[in-house]
């Protein structure tokens, strides 16, 4: 769970980072599936942003590997179905399938890194507050905060139920459907009861249908934030529209290879 101590100010204004991240994804994901070099260059955003947000890039990078199984499943079909020759390394022909496979992986990693950085900057709750600033409806924000608040509570309740059951049978992760249904049904009923107790607690503190928002967050959007967002967008557009890899390749080809 990503809990960030709310007393520590975020590295970057969390609204600014959210806007920048979305722009980043929009531009990055529009790169053609064969444009690996261009995609690789797009990782300068996470590399530079990660340390500012309080995480080392290496850690973000390693954690983003988590996404691999999901994308490998679909990506692996590319080399199977698309065998057209595309790239030559020495004597070795590499098909376009493998190139696009690589690009799917890079896209996946970069997308995941962007999310990880966004969360490590100001935590989930900080992000909720910036969503509220960006005029996302209160109802959805309240809902997100509620789910986040009761996630651990529910997990704990579930653990207690499982312990009680497993003590009587034996430890296992998978339950027969009938047992599972009864267990979840019970948990469900407890959940409904809990919601009624919470509602009672809300009412006794004067709740009348709308959750009030307490705004103590120094939001302080300054020209610096505008500058921050604009300069990154400029960088993304340059990376996307100017064929930098081509110029780099000229340099590397003439000097190194």
């Amino acid at each position: 769970m990503e809990f960030r101590d709310q007393a520590v100010p975020p590295g970057i204004n969390s609204c600014a980072l959210l806007i920048t991240t979305i722009c980043y994804l929009i531009v990055m994901l529009s790169v053609s599936p064969t444009g690996i070099s261009m995609l690789i260059l797009f990782s300068i955003f996470p590399i530079i942003t990660a340390p500012i947000c309080g995480e080392s890039y290496l850690k973000i990078m390693l954690r983003s590997l988590w996404v691999l199984p999901f994308i490998l499943f679909i990506g692996i079909f590319n080399p199977i179905f698309d065998k057209e020759a595309f790239l030559k390394i020495g004597e070795l022909d590499i098909s376009r399938g493998w190139v696009t496979f690589a690009s799917v992986i890079i896209r996946g990693l970069l997308g995941m890194q962007a999310i990880l950085i966004l969360i490590s900057n100001d935590g989930f709750l900080g992000l909720c507050n910036s969503l509220r600033r960006l005029k996302v409806p209160d109802l959805l924000i309240t809902q997100l905060q509620f789910v986040f608040r009761y996630l651990l509570v529910m997990m704990e309740e579930l653990q207690n139920m499982r312990r009680a059951r497993d003590a009587r049978s034996y430890g296992r992760d998978t339950y027969p459907l009938k047992v599972w249904g009864n267990m979840m049904g019970q948990l469900f009923i407890r959940t409904v009861d809990r919601s009624q107790r919470i509602h009672a607690a809300m009412i006794s503190r004067g709740f009348s249908g709308t959750i009030p928002t307490y705004n103590n967050y120094s939001f302080g959007w300054s020209y610096k934030n505008t500058l921050y967002v604009c300069s990154w967008i400029a960088v993304f557009l340059i990376l996307r529209l100017i064929n930098i890899p081509y110029y780099i390749s000229l340099v590397t080809a003439s000097h190194i290879l």
Partner: peptide, 30 residues
């Protein structure tokens, strides 16, 4: 979903979301 609702729907929706997470933690045999 009316913004001003005092029938307890708001906390119910909240804990139900958390319930879904908890329910997904336990597998059933197919």
């Amino acid at each position: 979903v009316k913004k001003k609702d005092n029938s307890g729907l708001i906390p119910l929706m909240g804990v139900m979301g958390a319930f879904i997470f908890a329910a997904q933690m336990v597998n059933f045999a197919i």
